[in-house]
Amino acid sequence: MSEQISGEPDKKSGGGLLQDVGAGLFLILISLFFIWQAWSLPLGSLRAMGPGMLPMSIAVIMGIGGAILMTIALVSGGPRLTRPHVRGLFFVLGGLILFGLTVRWLGLIVAGPLAMIFGSFASEEVRPVEAVIFAVVMTAFCIGLFKYALGLPIPIVAFM
């Protein structure tokens, strides 16, 4: 769980958006999305709740809460947002998605190293040769563990 996200102002932050303004906005957007989606669902009554009752009421409460959070931040200030770690996001999530795209089509033997090597570049300290060797070894280990020791039906080589 997270430790560093307490409210101390961060050195990296420039003149970015107030953190809690963003936080409020985030919830308001989600809330609006749920209200839009649940609009057509019957609410029912308290005696016999319909499917729309809870999504709608929770979304409304959460949206109002988000607005309060935003207002407090606008009035009394607070820490500002820090810049996102785009490199980490891109390579880690990219690696995961690459795995998803290739695992059925090409099998673990390709998807594994591909996801790991791509993912490795998320770190600034990446050493390409080391990353490739490690990826191949780990994939072999995973094939042994998941396919042979545990018998999970994960495709190893394409069409097998």
Partner: peptide, 22 residues
Amino acid sequence: RLMFPAILIFCAIGIYSINNSV
């Protein structure tokens, strides 16, 4: 730098295997 790709691949295989679902 070596640990997180290993976590990544373990998690990817694990998540795929729960329902065999991409």
